[in-house]
């Protein structure tokens, strides 16, 4: 069992490295997109998809699937990257990001892309959607889970807290929210734009089970997803401390990389760094 887990996490690390390269290739080629918030969420998505999500690339709409909702829709290159690794999309499709042709629009579209259940791009809506899918699973008596990735800046949206109350009220222990707590948003640092205060206390006061982790530590991520699944009393949230731009030295912790495409030189440099790691 333990060996299994180590092997899985090893696979997840390799996956994350490939994802990071594809995220850079997509944004570079499209001359647009939001690499910073993709790279902060990459390790979380790699572990979630490689170790936990029950999905079938041959049958993306398999009724028994677990659900993942990318509420912070601007990070869709990270989602495309993991869907490539899981076999929902093909490697060559990185060229289609933000193009008129193809299946990889600038923000998630469930009409276009296999493996994506909900459109997003307007921040604040995904947790409610996850609640709806989770309530349906409860009604059907299945053990399906609904995961949702939220940005820390996104938590300014009031709807998040409406949905937080809904999930707690209905004791949705099959909902797992993940906050990509990279401390940056579009205009700068979250602390300066509008502080989240004591984020753990906020979620706890909304009756959520809070797991605070290092969002780049594979053991911690894995363990947190396990504990979230084991917790039966209500919804769980992973407050994952992350670094925006993680994995590319000159992007790390830089708000400027929220929405900016790497130049040719920057791409070369970034890919070189990533090749050194794996």
């Amino acid at each position: 069992m333990l060996k299994d887990k180590e092997e899985l996490l090893h696979q997840a690390r390799l996956t994350a490295n490939k994802m990071r390269k594809n995220i850079l290739l997509m944004t570079h080629r499209a001359k647009g997109g939001h690499p910073g918030g993709c790279l902060s969420a990459t390790d979380l998505l790699a572990v979630l998809y490689k170790c936990f999500m029950r999905i079938d690339p041959q049958k993306p709409n398999w009724p028994g699937r677990d659900y993942f909702f990318l509420s912070k829709g601007h990070s869709v290159p990270a989602l495309y990257a993991i869907l490539i690794e899981m076999g929902f999309l093909s490697e060559g499709e990185v060229e289609d990001f933000r193009e008129m042709e193809g299946r990889l629009p600038a923000y998630p579209s469930c009409e276009d892309t296999p493996g994506i259940d909900m459109a997003s791009g307007s921040l604040g809506q995904g947790l409610s959607v996850a609640n709806g899918a989770a309530l349906a699973a409860k009604l059907n008596g299945t053990d399906q889970r609904a995961y949702v990735l939220l940005g820390d800046g996104e938590l300014h949206e009031g709807q998040i807290w409406e949905a937080a109350m809904t999930a707690a009220h209905y004791k949705l222990n099959n909902v797992c929210a993940i906050v990509d707590y990279n401390k940056l948003q579009l205009d700068g640092s979250v602390e300066e734009v509008k502080s989240l205060g004591d984020l753990k206390a906020k979620w706890e006061s909304f009756n959520w089970h809070v797991l605070e982790i290092d969002g780049h530590d594979y053991e911690q991520i894995y363990q947190a997803f396990v504990e979230a699944e084991q917790y039966r009393k209500g919804p769980s949230v992973l407050i994952a401390h992350t670094v925006k731009g993680k994995g590319v030295s000159f992007m790390e912790g830089e708000a400027g990389w929220h929405c900016a495409a790497p130049t040719d030189e920057e791409l070369t440099k970034a890919l070189k760094e990533l090749s050194r790691v794996c």
Partner: peptide, 22 residues
Amino acid sequence: FDLGISESDLICTGAGFAVAGK
């Protein structure tokens, strides 16, 4: 399901139900 006084949440929760085939 009474979601309380939260109309935005209500709409998206409905959408989530639809994702799951309801």
